[in-house]
Amino acid sequence: AFSSEQLARLKREFNENRYLTERRRQQLSSELGLNEAQIKIWFQNKRA
């Protein structure tokens, strides 16, 4: 489960760009304390 802070950040990123570069995913992973797979799957689900 994502914290409300993490979700807000993911939604902001998604609004700016529906697709993440690998580098951006790595940055978000480290900033949010999530693993890259969690972020990747969140974006895939959000696009679906």
Score class of each variant (00 low, 15 high):
residue 1 A to Y: 13
residue 1 A to I: 12
residue 1 A to W: 13
residue 1 A to H: 13
residue 2 F to T: 02
residue 2 F to S: 02
residue 4 S to C: 14
residue 5 E to K: 08
residue 6 Q to V: 12
residue 6 Q to W: 04
residue 6 Q to P: 01
residue 7 L to C: 12
residue 7 L to F: 04
residue 8 A to N: 09
residue 8 A to R: 13
residue 8 A to K: 09
residue 8 A to W: 05
residue 9 R to L: 06
residue 9 R to T: 07
residue 9 R to M: 07
residue 9 R to E: 06
residue 10 L to K: 00
residue 10 L to D: 01
residue 10 L to Q: 00
residue 10 L to F: 02
residue 11 K to G: 10
residue 11 K to L: 15
residue 11 K to V: 15
residue 11 K to W: 15
residue 11 K to F: 13
residue 13 E to G: 01
residue 14 F to Y: 09
residue 15 N to K: 12
residue 15 N to Y: 10
residue 16 E to A: 09
residue 16 E to V: 08
residue 16 E to D: 08
residue 16 E to M: 10
residue 17 N to R: 07
residue 17 N to G: 05
residue 17 N to M: 05
residue 18 R to P: 15
residue 18 R to A: 12
residue 18 R to S: 11
residue 19 Y to V: 10
residue 19 Y to F: 13
residue 20 L to D: 11
residue 20 L to N: 02
residue 20 L to V: 05
residue 21 T to G: 08
residue 21 T to P: 06
residue 21 T to A: 04
residue 22 E to D: 13
residue 22 E to R: 15
residue 24 R to A: 07
residue 24 R to C: 05
residue 24 R to Y: 06
residue 25 R to N: 09
residue 25 R to L: 15
residue 25 R to D: 01
residue 26 Q to T: 08
residue 26 Q to W: 07
residue 27 Q to C: 08
residue 28 L to R: 01
residue 28 L to T: 01
residue 30 S to N: 12
residue 30 S to Y: 14
residue 33 G to I: 03
residue 34 L to V: 10
residue 35 N to P: 15
residue 35 N to V: 06
residue 35 N to F: 07
residue 36 E to V: 10
residue 36 E to C: 06
residue 37 A to N: 13
residue 37 A to I: 13
residue 37 A to T: 13
residue 37 A to Q: 14
residue 38 Q to D: 14
residue 39 I to F: 02
residue 39 I to K: 01
residue 39 I to W: 03
residue 40 K to F: 14
residue 41 I to A: 13
residue 41 I to C: 12
residue 41 I to H: 11
residue 41 I to S: 11
residue 43 F to V: 01
residue 43 F to A: 01
residue 44 Q to T: 08
residue 44 Q to E: 15
residue 44 Q to P: 02
residue 45 N to I: 11
residue 45 N to M: 13
residue 45 N to Y: 10
residue 47 R to L: 15
residue 47 R to P: 03
residue 47 R to K: 06
residue 48 A to F: 09
residue 48 A to G: 08
residue 48 A to C: 12
